[in-house]
Design a binder for these strands. Structure first.
Length: 280
DNA sequence: ATAAGGCCCTGACCGC
DNA sequence: TGCGGTCAGGGCCTTA
């Protein structure tokens, strides 16, 4: 689930739940790789520190701690963060649990069935965060920024947009949605886009992301969707607003042509064969 | 520079 | 019911 809108939703939930200002009592690591391999070092370093600030950069959640260190959290494919009473039943998929004090009684649980997610404690997050590309919801994002990235590359546009060093925060869902909005085929070489197409894409990307945020993210499949308060049940509803993603065979909302599923850069992709003309 | 493949992991789903 | 194969919202690494 987690692309930019889902990470944003988690962040907002954590803020509303009052996570900033809470102190970490202890760190219980059930799967050491989640914290980089050394569970004991992580536990020792993080214990007693206070979470002062939360922000998002790309798909990373950045927790700034009182000590000046940062907890960089990436949900990858199946990660979720639950803020729950310590007494709430566990699922067995919790990889890290941070017990909170001031007041005590709650836990921040990193729930991650596939174990791809990471919660890394670093002295300085900049080396990791500076590698990331443009923030698509920043006021400075637009045609100029996108043109600069696309012009000099001939990579296929979809894999390029999935590259977090180019634009930070897009994943498979929102790239397919944005390319459909802008009527651009995912296999088009990036530098083959016309100025008008690039301008359309520069609008489409923030449009689909903002829609995702308004809808509290996209939840696929049968799983639960959210996030910080599992007991409150699924809230994400952007899956009902998707135009092409996982809508193979359904009519294109613009022209009625059945949506087709193709593979681009080893990722499944969804296109309207009439609206999005392939290259050559 | 770019593309492809493997890998990290587990669960859901489908056909037999 | 059980079994095997396929697929999954991400990203890193190695090899061509």
């Amino acid at each position: 689930m987690p692309e930019l809108p889902e990470v944003h939703t988690v962040l907002e939930d954590l803020r509303r739940a009052g996570l900033p200002g809470r102190r970490i009592g202890d760190a219980l690591v059930e799967w050491p790789r989640t914290v980089g391999g050394d569970a004991e070092a992580f536990r020792t370093a993080v214990r007693g520190d206070r979470i002062d600030d939360l922000r998002r950069r790309g798909k990373y959640l950045v927790f700034t701690l009182e000590s000046g260190r940062s907890l960089l959290t990436h949900l990858r494919m199946s990660g979720r963060l639950y803020l729950q009473p310590e007494s709430a039943p566990r699922t067995g998929y919790e990889r890290v649990r941070l017990t909170l004090v001031d007041p005590a009684g709650d836990e921040l649980r990193f729930h991650d069935p596939r174990k791809f997610g990471r919660m890394l404690l670093v002295d300085d997050p900049s080396p990791i965060l500076e590698r990331l590309g443009a923030e698509p919801l920043s006021p400075t994002f637009g045609t100029e920024v996108l043109t600069a990235e696309l012009q000099r590359r001939r990579r296929q546009i979809k894999p390029l947009l999935l590259d977090q060093t180019v634009v930070a925060g897009l994943g498979n869902i929102y790239v397919d949605e944005a390319l459909w909005e802008a009527r651009i085929h995912p296999e088009r070489p990036a530098n083959s886009l016309t100025d008008a197409e690039t301008a359309d894409l520069a609008v489409a990307i923030p449009t689909v992301l903002r829609r995702g945020i308004e809808n509290l993210g996209t939840s696929l499949g049968t799983g639960t969707s959210n996030f910080v308060f599992p007991e409150s049940g699924p809230r994400a509803r952007n899956q009902e607003e998707l135009r092409v993603f996982r809508r193979t065979g359904a009519p294109c909302p613009r022209c009625g042509t059945p949506i087709r599923r193709i593979i681009v850069g080893q990722r499944s992709s969804h296109v309207c064969p009439a609206c999005q003309t392939p290259p050559r």
